[in-house]
């Protein structure tokens, strides 16, 4: 047996081994805090989530704001594509994990998904609360000459190209988070929302509110993308469970597809 030389380098997590098993931890520390000997019973799930990503405890106001955002994002509702995808797993009796995998894959996209949040947070990092910079960014979004696996954006990140007015729940979440935000970001967004919407020719979306809030809380775009993926899963889970094997009552869109290049019935030509 070769001695182990490689190791996992991390600032997040440390462990001490149990005396009877070098593969079991006797104590687990998250950024220095004893998770099972100290944190358990003292902190909320949201505080722990913050600690894991930021490595320092949140201020009470920060935790309240992230908690409020988490409630606002938890269920996009069964019409939303990522939840619809999770329900597709539920109706066919697919594995529970596949429902969440479906919700993640579909909810990852740049139209209202986590990639939208990532891009919008990049805009916040670059433009801050400078209206002229936002106008310029929306009019002339940055262009990368290299190709990428992600489809190109077809709308200003954080705005809904299929929207009309800004939906009431989006404004309610923005208003609530604005009250909780001790900094300038959300109050500025609330004040300039209509100007920005006019510039974007689209209303602010949940992804735009989430991006602003996560930026205000000091998360990087990468952290924001990950949190958005994570925080939208509860609704997907609940709706997937509810639809379990409910195929007879789930929309199949039987008459909802029209084929434009149907060659018509033909005899097999492979012989």
């Amino acid at each position: 047996m070769k001695p182990s030389k490689e190791s996992i380098v991390t600032k997040i997590w440390n462990e001490e081994p149990e005396p009877d098993n070098p593969f079991a931890a006797r104590a687990c520390y998250c950024s220095g805090f004893d998770v099972y000997g100290d944190l358990l019973g003292k902190i909320s799930w949201i505080q722990y989530l913050w600690l894991l990503i930021r490595l320092e405890p949140p201020e009470p106001a920060q935790a309240r704001m992230l908690e409020a955002l988490a409630v606002g994002l938890a269920n996009p509702g069964p019409r939303e594509p990522s939840v619809h995808a999770a329900m597709c797993a539920g109706v066919g009796g697919s594995t529970r994990a596949s429902a969440l995998i479906a919700a993640l894959s579909v909810g990852a996209g740049n139209l209202g998904g986590a990639r939208d949040v990532f891009a919008a947070m990049g805009n916040w990092a670059d433009c801050g609360t400078d209206l002229a910079a936002w106008r310029e960014r929306i009019r002339n979004p940055p262009v990368d000459e290299r190709d990428d696996v992600w489809p190109s954006f077809e709308h200003p990140p954080g705005f809904d190209p299929n929207g009309a007015g800004c939906p009431t729940p989006v404004r309610q979440l923005l208003n609530h988070l604005t009250v909780l935000d001790p900094g300038p970001v959300l109050p500025w967004l609330q004040q300039n929302r209509e100007v920005l919407q006019h510039e974007a020719d689209a209303p602010l979306a949940f992804s735009g509110v989430a991006a602003a809030a996560l930026h205000a809380l000091g998360f990087t775009p990468e952290q924001g993308e990950m949190l958005f993926l994570l925080l939208r899963l509860p609704g997907a889970a609940a709706h997937a469970l509810e639809q379990k094997m409910n195929w007879a009552k789930f929309p199949f869109f039987g008459n909802g597809l029209r084929l434009t290049d149907d060659p018509g019935p033909s005899s097999p030509d492979h012989e």
């Binding site: 990522s82 995808a85 479906a102 740049n110």
Partner: peptide
């Protein structure tokens, strides 16, 4: 649905 939300292939 992943296509309609502009996720990756």
């Amino acid at each position: 649905l992943a296509g309609t939300t502009r996720s990756t292939g």
